[in-house]
């Protein structure tokens, strides 16, 4: 079942800086939910196709036509931090 190390790994993958308390609570809650989900193991899915789209539609494409891009200031309007025409982010350290 899911242990503390898994929870920390998943929190890292999900970019969530969780507190000690959150990690511990999370472990218990995830364990309970995964426990419930175990019931799916009982289902015989031999040869069953997976469903990823509820409706059977294929080949939906658009023509290669240019549409005017958004107005620069409007598109930057929600930026938490910017420098001139750019979005600005703090120092990147390779994860």
């Amino acid at each position: 079942m899911i242990d503390r190390k898994d929870v920390e790994h998943v929190a890292r993958l999900g970019r969530l800086a969780l507190t000690e308390g959150e990690l511990e609570r999370m472990r218990g809650e995830l364990a309970a939910i995964l426990q419930y989900i175990e019931k799916l193991r009982a289902v015989d899915v031999e040869g069953v196709e997976p469903t990823s789209h509820a409706v059977p539609v294929v080949n939906v494409m658009r023509e290669d036509e240019v549409e005017p891009p958004g107005d620069h200031e409007t598109m930057m309007g929600n930026a938490p931090d910017r420098s001139g025409e750019f979005f600005r982010v703090p120092r990147i350290i390779e994860d």
Partner: peptide, 12 residues
């Protein structure tokens, strides 16, 4: 440089 930069700018 990537290593020394205190900030980076993004152009989409």
């Amino acid at each position: 440089t990537l290593e020394t930069a205190q900030a980076s700018l993004v152009d989409f």
